[in-house]
């Protein structure tokens, strides 16, 4: 997992990155509510420069899945 995923969540939930637990997920992290989820998707769309596909929105459940979306952006920029 990259620090970017934690930074993303920290930005959305207005906390410091170290305050985001390693196992933060949509099911377990109390700060992760529907408003935060909406902000997270909007931030991701800004970062990727396009609307997210349905599958991508559905895939966002924890830090690992968020990291995969961010990695995809990094990967595509080098192709």
């Amino acid at each position: 997992m990259t620090l970017d995923a934690k930074n993303f969540l920290a930005q959305v939930f207005d906390v410091e990155p170290f305050e985001v637990p390693d196992d933060a997920s949509l099911d377990t992290y109390q700060r992760w509510d529907s408003l935060g989820h909406m902000q997270l998707v909007m931030l991701l769309e800004t970062h990727l420069g396009r609307p997210l596909e349905s599958e991508e929105i559905l895939s966002i459940i924890d830090l690992e899945s968020l990291d995969q979306l961010l990695t995809m952006k990094t990967g595509s920029s080098h192709s």
Partner: peptide
């Protein structure tokens, strides 16, 4: 709708399974 992110969050948080797009 795919743009109704609040609703998607609620379905996932509550444990509903994907049933098609």
């Amino acid at each position: 709708y795919q743009t109704n992110v609040h609703a998607i969050f609620n379905y996932k948080r509550q444990g509903w399974e994907l049933d098609g797009i």
